[in-house]
Structure formats: C-alpha cells, structure tokens
C-alpha cells in the first residue's frame, strides 16, 4: 500500500510538473509587434482642450446615438432635453471629463474614447475574433460575430467597451474611429474635425508622435516630456499630451506598463498548445499508469479488494 501510494505521488508530481512547465513558466511577455506605419490615430492635447464638448456632439451625430440624460427629464418634462452622460456608455462613445489634478489643482479637460491600441487586449480576449485591429489602425467590432460574453470589457485596461444592458439582443458599443462613416471616404474622424481649439489632431500615428515631440521641444514650459500612449500597454492609437508636473494618472490615464496587457495570457495559451505536446504528454503518462495498473490486476496483483 505504501509503495503504491508513493508511486501515486510521484506520478502525480510528474503529471502536474508537465503542466507547470506548460502553463506557468512563460511569465515573460512575448516581444512587441512592430507598429504598422500606416496606422491612423489621434493626438489629444489636453493643454489645448477648452472643454466645449463639440467633439461629443459631433460623435453622437455621426454615430446617430441617442441622448443620455442624468437629470430625469424624460419623467419630468416628457423628453430628454440635455445630453449629460457621466461616463462612456452604449450611447456615448467619447466624453470630455474635467480632471482636477492633485498637483497644482488646475482643471484639465481630458477626452476619453477607445484608444485603438496597437496590441488590443480586447481583440486578444475575444473568443470569436469579433474585435480586430484593422490596417488603418482602427480596432473594429463586428456585432454579427459577437456572442455577447463581455470578456472584452474585462480585458480592456481603459474599460472602454460598453454593453447594451437595456437591449434584449445586446451588442458591444465603442468608438468606431468613424471607420465605416468617414475614414472610408478619406475624411478624418468627426471629433477631430469638430474641435475648435485644435486639441485633437488626426493623422498617421508615426506622424503624430513626431508632432507631439516637436510640441514638447518647442514649448517645454507648456508640455510634460512624455507622450502618453506611445509605449503604454504596447502603444495606443490615441496619444495624449499634458502640462508639466502633472501625473497622467490623475488625468484618468493610469501609469500602465509598456508591455502588452494580453502578453501573459497569450504566452500561457501558446505554451499549453505548442504542438499539443503538453496535453499529449499528460495523456500518455496517464495512459501508461492505467495500463500498468490493469496489467498488474490481471496478473493477480489484487489491490483494493476488487473482484470484477
């Protein structure tokens, strides 16, 4: 009994050991993919934004999104009068938020929308590949493919994807980068066109980084020497500039690491299924043990009092 029990342990250790090798070792993230120079993006200059919300209006018009009232006008007046979204939602793809930075206490207006990441965690997470990085840089969503599992909402570090909680047949909603409506016709995004303060610059991502660097160089008093989104989470399509001595985190742009969000899960997945070696190995080990035990039983080496 004791011997077989030790064997039990040993074999268990071997089996779990192979799983360990398969699943746990690859803590190091894989290398970043080189960003495509053709990718389009936007540069949001928070030092220029005046908080007029023209971009919000333009976005709602372009995407034909309904008003979102937080004042309960629908009940009181009979219809929604003001559009007053509090955060991104299935009806609001972009939003200007006033952030009161702790340092200096100055109010800063920060535009939120999908960041159109270079290595989108949502696209990595999506079980059916309904979210995909396009050649033009947009992270596009295909509602026909989507199953509505909401794993993308968990995956997105910026919590951008929104779900239609009120619909019987809900979809994910997020900034489309005006891919179908404007980009196709060669026009820039609606929000960037609407901005009266020149706070949103539309263009190729590589160009935008150059513009950002130039602005920082020309006016170091005005700008912090950091382009948010150039490296964060492996790079984002929407980049941000901010005033100096101000944490990006206090503007609602957390200090994320430079490696991709999905690096760990992807490498674990990859190892487990690398040429199917780990599953096949576990299968063979277990098969061997089963064969051994059955043969021993046949040879009269009864154990456990079976009389089948």
């Amino acid at each position: 009994m004791d011997i077989s029990r030790r064997k039990f342990l040993q074999i268990g250790a071997v089996a779990s050991g192979s799983v360990v090798c398969a699943g746990v070792k690859p803590a190091s993230a894989r290398d970043l993919r080189e960003p495509n120079p053709e990718w389009l993006g936007m540069l949001n200059d928070t030092t220029r934004c005046i908080g007029c919300k023209a971009c919000q209006v333009a976005c709602k018009k372009e995407n034909k999104l309904p008003k979102e009232s937080t004042l309960n006008e629908a009940a009181n007046v009979g219809r929604d009068v003001y559009d007053a979204p509090r955060g991104l939602s299935d009806r609001t793809y972009t939003l200007i938020k006033m952030q009161q930075a702790k340092e200096g206490g100055k109010a800063t207006f920060v535009k939120t929308q999908c960041m159109h990441c270079s290595e989108p965690a949502c696209a990595s997470a999506c079980i059916v590949g309904a979210l995909k990085k396009q050649d033009n840089g947009a992270v596009a969503y295909d509602s026909k493919l989507c199953m509505g599992c909401r794993y993308c909402m968990v995956a997105c570090p910026f919590s951008v994807p929104q779900f239609e909680w009120q619909n019987a047949i809900p979809s994910i909603k997020k900034c489309t980068f005006c891919r179908e409506t404007r980009l196709k016709e060669g026009k820039p995004t609606a929000c960037s066109t609407a901005c009266p303060a020149g706070a949103i610059t539309f263009g190729k991502r590589t160009e935008l980084i150059k513009i950002a660097r130039q602005r920082i160089e020309e006016d170091p008093e005005r700008y912090q020497d950091h382009v948010y989104g150039e490296k964060e989470v492996g790079g984002t399509g929407v980049l941000y500039l901010a005033r100096p001595k101000m944490q990006f985190a206090s503007l609602g742009l957390p200090a994320f690491e430079y490696r991709t969000v999905a690096g760990l899960t992807e490498s674990i997945q990859h190892r487990i299924f690398q040429y199917f070696i780990p599953p096949v190995a576990v299968y063979s080990v277990l098969g061997g043990i089963m064969y051994y035990n059955q043969r021993r039983k046949k040879n009269g080496g009864e154990e456990g009092g079976s009389h089948e």
């Binding site: 990595s124 079980i127 059916v128 590949g129 599992c149 899960t265 992807e266 674990i268």
Partner: peptide, 9 residues
C-alpha cells in the same frame, strides 16, 4: 470562428 489567443476559446 476561432481566435487562438483567447483563453475563453
């Protein structure tokens, strides 16, 4: 519709 990078898959 397969997406091999997805854990859910």
């Amino acid at each position: 519709y397969w997406n091999g990078t997805s854990v859910l898959f």
